[in-house]
Design a protein around this nucleic acid. Sequence first.
DNA 1: CGAGATTCATGTGAAGTATACCTTTAGGCTTAA
DNA 2: AAGCCTAAAGGTATACTTCACATGAATCTCGTA
Length: 418
Amino acid sequence: MKRISFKYHHFLWRFMGDLGLQDFFGNYAHKEGVFVERKALQSNYLPDSLPHREEQITQIANILAPSLRRGRPSNVFIYGKTGTGKTHTTNHVVHNLVVAAKEHKVPIKSIYVNCKLKRLADTEYRLVAQLIRECGGTIAATGLPTDEVYKAFFEIVEEQKGLVLLILDEVDQLVKKAGDEILYNLVRVNEELKHSQIVLLGISNDLVFVDTIDPRVRSSLSEEEVVFPPYNAFQLQDILRKRSELAFKKDVVQQGVVEKCAAYAAREHGDARRALELMRVSAEIAERNNHDLVKLEHIDQAEEKIERDRVVDIINAQPKQSQATLYSIMLSSKKEKRNISTGEVYDAYKSLATQAGLRPLTQRRISDILSELDMLGIISTRIISKGRYGRTSEISLAIPAPIFEKTEHLLAEGLALS
DNA sequence: CGAGATTCATGTGAAGTATACCTTTAGGCTTAA
DNA sequence: AAGCCTAAAGGTATACTTCACATGAATCTCGTA
């Protein structure tokens, strides 16, 4: 599709516009679907109420409340596994705070950055640059001294003449990659700022994360801590029901679907995001198959689709060299069913790279790429020593077989034809 | 037979290099008074 | 003379390479029972 020239595309569009498209859209609009409000199940949807998180809401609210009297609240550290509502709850509270502040004419601004997003905020420089962008400023993507970027950011903060709430989602990812100096620097800023103050709200999936950072930073970063326990199956059911009521028409969800979605997600440490996604994708599958009832079997299909999409997204986001590495793992693991060693992967990679017109990287670099892929959960590596015959990582794909086929095709296309 | 030394294939840390990009500065050119 | 553009100089972040050392259990060596 992407190879279709503009002219041809244009022609196609007009052709369809005249004959088929109107009908198509017309049918689509009148078609009986299961959704009323699809958005209500999407992961970025912010519901008005967050059930079973009342305690955390009051905790955070209490911590941040002094800001309304122009005091400086403590920095907060928020823990919890993925999908326990950390991000939503925090944003919910902060949003309400900002609204209240506006009413009372107290200057408060909030900045939200997700540190996990690759190439956006995974180094010190990029994080600060992203912070500036969030404030509406512009900054060069590279080339500036880091101090300079900090300075630019401070100036923007200073201009606010008030409180700035800095929400750093998934800080643990950032610190793991870029070190804890960033946090130290941000904390240190407060001493230099005259008219403004910064409050850090760190959100982390990693429960032991705080123990790994510099004690100086630790004491100032986690002045207050809030823990988000996982939802249990009943709470998940409750959440799912509430959202389904918003999202679906009446009586389109088969008995037991909610329970099954909740059970799946509860198995994965109570991940509500996953439960909701499962629900939404199941319904989409049902809808696409022209069913007006979301059935249990759709959930299984949905689960596979979600996993596949996740893998495909990750792979597409990878640079060419990582893709080549992954592809060579796939090729060699297909040849031999046992786990593969680093050396084998590197050999396969070298020939593949030259074949695809890439400059082969060194083994050192491939080793790093492998551990990155491991972190992404696409492969799994385990260092083993084979005694007299050296030490190596046992590498295996962490992708289920049916998804494997699709992605392999994708990689082959992306590499060989470029 | 068993304790310690060897050995292999690679993991891993540190330092160096190439590239791409940034700002500043200086010089040359144009323009307007 | 002032203003603007361009190119070189000087600087940085990032991705990668080079170098060097660390690892850890199967195997080897050699002393001992």
